[in-house]
């Protein structure tokens, strides 16, 4: 019983990380009809920037404050000077260029930090475990769940209650209509990219103390993010949250039973959703 409970909580933590990687990808996909194969590399670079700041200053909190904004800047630059050229190009060139960008980031990371993964120490404040009777759980993992839940709430407020959020939500419906209302959609695209890269980078930073920073963590994260985006519904914030948690929990619960089976299942689910219900679980028709 308690094993399943612990795996459920593990799954929630992993699911929240999946959500943070996927939500930017999903919104970018939904508004710009642009598939960013470099999104996994943003997650990777976020983890390494976090590692670099911790290695230089010893402060994980500083890393968490500095690395994600640096990723937002990276995402903004990438969109503004590279990817925005491709909005009208056939999608194979969008994929080619983003694959190229992902390679450049991945190889650049190995050039700077080496080809072997790096460990990031858990911050002192969050070392050790929490004990509730017979229930024992690492503090840091609980922190990740709490922190990402708080962030999700803030994001949701921003999307629902601010002018920018309204523009973004309108953008996932129809960018043409938003542009007709006199809103500079290209600025919106740049901002969305920056936000997506920020969240992916933050996800990388938060994972680093759990599983370390590894130069090859990008492609795996990207393909799980594709599953989450498709299953949740392209362009849907709540869909990405539901999809992320679902995949996280399924993978975690299946990990001791049959982990390859879980991986086969999630891609079967992805294909089925595209074929049968392309708008996903929570996407709009």
């Amino acid at each position: 019983m308690s094993l399943y409970l612990i795996q459920l909580i593990n799954g929630l933590g992993i699911g929240m990380i999946y959500f943070m990687i996927s939500v930017g990808l999903s919104i970018i996909f939904g508004t710009m009809n642009f598939v960013n194969f470099a999104h996994g590399a943003f997650y990777l670079l976020g983890a390494y920037l976090c590692y670099a700041v911790v290695a230089a200053t010893g402060s994980f909190w500083l890393a968490l404050a500095v690395a994600p904004p640096a990723m937002a800047l990276t995402g903004w630059f990438a969109e503004r000077y590279l990817l925005s050229r491709l909005y009208h190009a056939p999608h194979q060139y969008q994929i080619l260029v983003t694959l190229g960008l992902a390679l450049v980031i991945q190889e650049g990371v190995m050039l700077v930090w080496g080809a072997i993964g790096q460990n990031v120490a858990t911050p002192v404040l969050l070392q050790g475990v929490v004990v509730f009777g017979s229930f024992v759980y690492p503090k840091y993992r609980l922190f990740v769940i709490g922190f990402t839940a708080l962030l999700t709430f803030v994001l949701w407020l921003a999307l629902e209650r601010t002018r920018y959020g309204a523009i973004l939500r309108a953008g996932t419906e129809s960018t043409e209509m938003v542009a007709l209302l006199g809103i500079d959609i290209f600025r919106m695209f740049s901002f969305t990219f920056a936000l997506g890269a920020y969240l992916a980078g933050l996800a990388g930073g938060l994972t680093a103390p759990i599983s370390g920073a590894d130069p090859f963590m990008g492609p795996g994260a990207l393909s799980v993010a594709f599953v989450v985006v498709v299953i949740g519904g392209i362009g849907s914030f709540s869909g990405a949250l539901a999809g992320g948690l679902l995949i996280g929990v399924v993978q975690s619960e299946m990990s001791s039973l049959w982990s390859e089976g879980a991986n086969i299942m999630i891609y079967v689910a992805m294909a089925l959703v595209i074929l049968v219900r392309p708008r996903g679980l929570l996407g709009r028709a």
Binding site: R85, L86, A89, L96, V97, L99, G100, L101, L103, V104
Partner: peptide, 13 residues
């Protein structure tokens, strides 16, 4: 592969 990535970006653009 870093070079390859740059080439892909140039070819794509």
């Amino acid at each position: 592969l870093l070079l390859l990535g740059l080439i892909l970006m140039v070819v794509g653009c």
